[in-house]
């Protein structure tokens, strides 16, 4: 029995997922860059481009469901297609975080940034780097690499904590800073969630290879551990 046609379809799907991933990476880095430069036009473009991300996700979902119906996959093939459905939905949400950051920049209007952005671009770079490697691992069915990525989320969480503390200091110093601190806190929160979703993608890649669900890391662990009431 030849399954060349099916293998070609699977490869096509994987290529499209990588493409969707790069659209998301581009949007996220662009959203932070636009905020840094207070470039409202660039942010507005990112909001428009999010529609293309959503469209691509639906196209992929349609292709995946069609492939499941026509090929009636079993075992690893079925796990791959079912997991890819999940991954494309994760990517679409990650695109929404980029759009969220773009929206913040637009809504800030001509208000100045509370502080120059240093750790926020670091969070974005780290998250995008993790996503890129997670999708490479997915496409090459490399569960070992996928298993090693989620732990790096601690770096993103640490940056988030640092930004949070810093912004609190600004607020305590002068409550007039609340509004502008809040904008940046939301940006950081979006970036923190972005990196969490990379973990979900890695878990799927491991499921495809091993056939069992393994939760690698509780999302938000680091952040909430440092927010116990006793600490305040």
């Amino acid at each position: 029995m030849t399954r060349k046609a099916f293998d070609t379809e699977i490869q096509k799907i994987k290529d499209e997922v990588i493409l969707l991933g790069s659209m998301v990476e581009h949007a996220l880095l662009g959203s932070v860059e636009a905020l840094k430069k207070r470039d409202i036009k660039a942010s507005e473009a990112i909001i428009v481009e999010d529609k293309a991300i959503n469209r691509k996700r639906f196209d992929l979902e349609d292709q995946l469901v069609t492939l499941i119906a026509r090929q009636q996959p079993m075992a690893q093939d079925l796990r791959l297609l079912a997991s890819t459905l999940e991954i494309v939905s994760e990517l679409e949400r990650m695109g929404d975080y980029a759009k969220g950051i773009a929206n913040i920049n637009v809504r800030m209007g001509d208000e100045k940034l509370l502080k120059p952005l240093i750790d926020i671009p670091r969070m974005a770079n780290k998250g995008v780097d993790m996503l890129h490697r997670a999708l490479t691992a997915y496409a090459s069915n490399d569960a070992e690499t996928a298993a090693g990525i989620p732990v790096e989320d601690d770096e993103v969480d640490a940056l988030y904590n640092q930004i949070y503390r810093e912004l609190m200091v600004f607020i305590i110093e002068d409550p007039k800073n609340i509004e502008r601190a809040n904008w940046l806190l939301w940006v950081a929160h979006n970036l923190e969630r972005f990196a969490d979703r990379v973990t979900n993608i890695c878990e799927r890649t491991m499921y495809i290879a091993h056939g069992s669900f393994e939760e690698i890391k509780q999302s938000d662990d680091e952040f909430w551990k440092s927010r116990k009431p006793s600490d305040n």
Binding site: M1, R3, M74, A75, D77, R79, G211
Partner: peptide, 19 residues
């Protein structure tokens, strides 16, 4: 057998790689 067979040959058969 159909989701997570332990024998590689079973996996290959149910996914249509031979047979």
């Amino acid at each position: 057998i159909f989701m997570r067979p332990s024998d590689k040959r079973t996996e290959d058969y149910v996914t249509g790689r031979f047979g």
